[in-house]
């Protein structure tokens, strides 16, 4: 079912979903879906509301249990790691729908927290305030600062998220996912609430990430998805109805009838602002 990826899968680490089934009570959210995403590849996951996109992310992250099927990343099973906090060690980072920033942490701290699993100083040296711990802390802060600089939001480093414009908050959330240097990045509706210009910038940014990592992108804005993705997986009623290049998906009649036809038309005529997917 899965289409050939643009890069050889031997070149990078691969997320592989195989015959995954997830049900909530009597409702089947994901019905034996199979797909893959490889490091260096940007894969869009689209589909109408309720198609199972966020459920797919939630299973990958261990928030939702699968009934059957397999998810592996770089050979190791994700269904056996039931905990979201193990993901960063495997090189997987995720942003949340909305922003999911910590209200009581400054922008800089919000970013720092994304990479603190890699810190080696132990509890004792943190409690005693030893140089070993504070030096590491300083290095992490400067790394977070650099990343904010790259994303153009370093001026806000000491502010608290609630006081900032939405687009700044979105970038901060992205920085938090990126600071762990993931090899697979799951983006859950990164463009929601952004203006057209900001969406263009986001598209450029995501393209710039792709050599270093694989990106799995759930997004309603078709302009962005079509412009950015190497490959698109279309979900409908928990099933994969198409998997291929943006062009092949756009010309797929099944996709058109299920979902995309109206959507593409809509989003083109209203300059990509359509949210009613």
């Amino acid at each position: 079912m899965s289409a050939p990826s643009t890069l050889s899968e031997r070149d990078g680490r691969t997320l592989r979903v195989d015959e995954l089934r997830v049900g909530f009570g009597g409702v089947v959210a994901l019905d034996r879906i199979s797909m893959s995403a490889t490091q260096g590849e940007i894969v869009g996951v689209i589909g109408p509301n309720g198609a199972g996109k966020t459920t797919l992310f939630n299973v990958i992250c261990g928030f939702v249990r699968a009934d059957s099927g397999v998810i592996t990343y770089d050979g190791s099973s994700l269904l056996e790691h039931h905990h979201a906090h193990d993901l960063t060690e495997l090189g997987i980072a995720r942003t949340l729908q909305g922003v999911g920033l910590f209200a009581g942490l400054s922008v800089l701290e919000n970013v720092m927290i994304g990479a603190q699993n890699g810190l080696r100083s132990d509890f004792g040296s943190a409690m005693l305030g030893l140089w070993r711990s504070s030096r590491e802390e300083r290095r992490l802060a400067s790394r977070a600062g650099e990343l904010l600089e790259e994303l153009g939001v370093s001026a806000y480093a000491r502010h608290f998220p609630a006081t900032l414009p939405y687009s700044i908050q979105k970038r901060t959330a992205l920085a938090r996912a990126l600071i762990a240097q993931p090899s697979l990045l799951l983006l859950d509706e990164p463009a929601s609430g952004l203006s057209n210009d900001e969406m263009d910038e986001l598209g450029t940014l995501i393209r710039g990430l792709s050599p270093r990592m694989g990106v799995l992108l759930v997004e309603h804005h078709m302009d962005l998805v079509m412009a950015v993705c190497d490959r698109i997986v279309v979900l409908n009623f928990g099933q994969v109805i198409a998997d291929g290049t943006p062009e092949s998906v756009q010309s797929n009649p099944e996709v058109a009838t299920a979902y995309l036809g109206d959507e593409v038309h809509d989003s083109v005529t209203t300059s990509g602002m359509s949210e009613n997917a």
Binding site: A84, H85, F102, G104, E109, I113, Q116, R176
Partner: peptide, 19 residues
């Protein structure tokens, strides 16, 4: 930082790698 992050948002904290 972890204490405060967990207080603010447990799901986001676990995605940031916090147990």
């Amino acid at each position: 930082r972890s204490f405060r992050a967990v207080r603010d948002d447990e799901i986001a904290a676990s995605l940031a790698g916090i147990h």
